[in-house]
Design a protein around this nucleic acid. Structure first.
Lengths: 234, 234
DNA sequence: TTATTATTAGTCAATATGACTAATAATAAA
DNA sequence: TTTATTATTAGTCATATTGACTAATAATAA
């Protein structure tokens, strides 16, 4: 008869792949690791799961500590359970990806935790299997964004269509036709055009839009097939 | 300074939601639990993760033991990490969904492990949070099947279009137009029609098809938007 | 021979798509 | 003041896809 007591116990951690978008490129929030082994090397934001908290709780706690933000969009996407992924002792890591409006992020915390934003395509080497985690998280983000309008979580309240298109292109690593993109976005009914224009990047200026929150909540699944030539590996 | 030694350690298990299809309804393979607490109650196929194996290894081992099958389609989809989900001691469970050709399943093992197939809509109450796991797995299967042709894993080598349609309808809990379904399926290039017919369920008989395996592997992502009115909650 | 019926194929109006061109609005240059 | 410039926005159009529907088919049973 199998009994609990005789079974092995393991350390369990959470690791968060934090995405941000500054209007130009998709970014990743990384920290200098604060414990041995591999201390002071670049790593994902993470920590051990405490005895009284769920893994979701742990991810939120760790994010709050490192970004100062509550209510971040967070989604568990994979457990990394190779026996030898940590050189010291077996640790299972539950990986989450997080989407945050980069403008809300308070840079003061930067110093405290030595956190830093990197363009996803120019990230440094990370410890352990964190590079794989980032790669998997990017695929998952693409996958999810193909079916759900989650990318708005990365944008400020007011955003322009060109900004939105750039974000889609960054996430999907592709280029799309502007006219067709605008037509499709407008047809979703998710956007509300404001009277104000953003003239920082053109003479004509681009209208600001905001999310139609009612539609966003009720039709969370409506953005299917927004991407042409969808390529999903997960 | 945080050190590994001072951190709490937990039991880690895997649980498998095993789907099958008998031509009529989507089914679930359940077992009578063999250890306390809740011994002899219906439960998902599962087990503890051993010290030398990954969670994927553990899931495959547990499936092999309970079904006799190797090489089952298996996909990790969520970790259940609530501190109190097991009444005796904290156990984190890594949940997998599995798709098997129900005809390959050897019923002999049925007795050894008291395993039994249930239509998903008529399953008994399960222990702990296993009911939630099944519900989540069904959503995830629907989600995945919307983008990838994985449902073929549930069918025998030779199958008919009406069978395939019934499977799609079962998984998505909907009805679809037969003509349009056939047109769309044929247009994927994934199917090869055989000369043989299945006459068991009609006078005219329905042509058998087989998978175009080359196409299946190379275009694993091409079945996007096969479902009308897609509703995905994950 | 005829009626039956699941299966398969075909029709068609409406909509969506991808590639493309034209118009617009404001600025900067002449 | 006029003109050139350019990102943004809107419009065109041939083609493909969709959903709802009807018709033809093949074998059996009456």
């Amino acid at each position: 008869m199998i009994e609990y007591a005789s079974q092995p116990h393991y350390l369990v951690a959470v690791d968060c792949i934090v995405f941000g978008f500054d209007g130009e490129s998709l970014k990743l929030l990384l920290v200098k690791r604060g414990l041995e082994p591999e201390i002071n090397k670049w790593s994902l934001i993470g920590g051990f799961v405490g005895p009284e908290e769920s893994t979701d709780d742990a991810a939120n706690r760790v994010l709050k500590k490192n970004t100062g933000l509550d209510g971040i969009y967070l989604e568990q996407f994979k457990v990394y359970g190779q026996p030898n992924r940590d050189p010291i002792e077996r640790i299972l890591s539950v990986a989450y990806f997080a989407l945050i409006d980069i403008n809300k992020y308070s840079a003061q915390l930067n110093n405290d935790f030595q956190a830093e934003w990197f363009p996803v395509n120019e990230k440094p080497e990370l410890i352990f299997d964190h590079n794989t985690m980032v790669s998997d998280a990017r695929k998952r983000l693409r996958y999810k964004a193909a079916l759900h309008p989650i990318l708005f979580e990365l944008l400020p309240k007011k955003f322009t269509l060109p900004q939105l298109q750039t974000l889609f292109e960054e996430v999907n690593d592709t280029k799309m036709d502007t006219g067709n993109f605008n037509r499709k976005m407008n047809s979703t009914g998710l956007l509300v055009r404001l009277d104000e224009k953003d003239k920082s990047s053109s003479k004509k200026g681009a209208y600001y839009f905001k999310l139609n929150h009612k539609k966003y909540r009720s039709d969370f699944h409506l953005v299917l097939n927004l991407m042409p030539n969808l390529r999903l590996d997960i």
